[in-house]
């Protein structure tokens, strides 16, 4: 079951190039195994991020034949032995070297979202929530922060200048998670998604949902409901009047 596989791997930084390698492939292996074998036998300085090798940490994101994927969860058996497999870094982020990109954009966006605000009237241990209610937010908390959804999102993939105003799918689900958290004391999550995160720029092509290794239904369960909440809150005249009277937005 062992054969020599053909690989083209990005080497260098933004001005780098694709380099051809022939490397041993064994039964049951994943792309990350092959990258590790390259490191151990041919290119000891090949830069790659990885941690758990079990699809749980979201470190080894890359583009395999142009598709955003986790290298640890991409089995070699999905390719033909004669195929040449091209491995390149995520295109939406600046390349540091080889397969490693600068993902600091995501950490900056994470820091802009107001944190969970605990309910003032409950002590630790007094929280009561129904499973059916926490389940909605739990779906989004499955996110392993691989940033493949950010990588594939054409709003920032093809338009660098959108990055400042646009938080991306990973952080729309964070906003949705907090909006749907049964005990979050804030009620301005939708406003934030509109004004600060640029959720309006998303035109629902569902590319993010397709690449999510955790199968989170990003578009249908998070982005569309957040867009709807924006509409409800800001364009429904009754809600608008109610907000004016009660001034509950803070």
């Amino acid at each position: 079951m062992t054969y020599d596989g053909h690989f083209r791997v990005w080497r260098g930084d933004d001005g780098g190039e694709l380099v051809d390698y022939t490397v041993e492939v064994n039964e049951g292996e994943v792309v990350l195994d092959i990258i590790h074998r390259l490191q151990a036998t041919q290119t000891p300085d090949l830069a790659v991020r990885w941690n758990c090798k079990a699809g749980k940490c979201g470190s080894c994101s890359a583009e395999i034949n142009g598709h955003p994927r986790l290298m640890c969860m991409t089995r070699m058996s999905i390719f033909e032995e004669a195929d040449t497999i091209t491995v390149t870094p995520m295109r939406t982020f600046p390349v540091i070297r080889d397969l490693v990109t600068d993902v600091s954009y995501n950490y900056e966006k994470a820091r802009q979202i107001p944190a969970f605000e605990p309910p003032a009237d409950l002590e630790p241990g007094e929280y009561r929530m129904a499973q059916v209610d926490v389940g909605r937010s739990q779906e989004f908390r499955k996110c392993i922060e691989c940033f493949l959804c950010q990588d594939v999102c054409h709003v920032i993939r093809d338009h660098e200048d959108n990055k400042a105003a646009y938080a991306g799918p990973r952080f729309f689900i964070r906003a949705a998670e907090l909006a749907m958290h049964p005990l979050d004391a804030r009620n301005d999550r939708a406003t934030f998604a509109r004004d600060q995160q640029g959720v309006g720029l998303c035109n629902i092509t569902k590319c993010c949902t397709e690449v999510c290794p955790e199968n989170i239904t990003i578009t249908d369960n998070a982005i569309i409901p957040m867009k709807e909440r924006v509409v409800d809150r800001h364009y429904d005249p009754l809600v608008w009047l109610g907000n004016k009277i009660r001034r509950r937005e803070h």
Binding site: P118, M129, Q131, Q138, R141
Partner: peptide
């Protein structure tokens, strides 16, 4: 209180 959501 930090926002964790355990199963219920």
């Amino acid at each position: 209180t930090y926002g964790a959501l355990f199963d219920r």
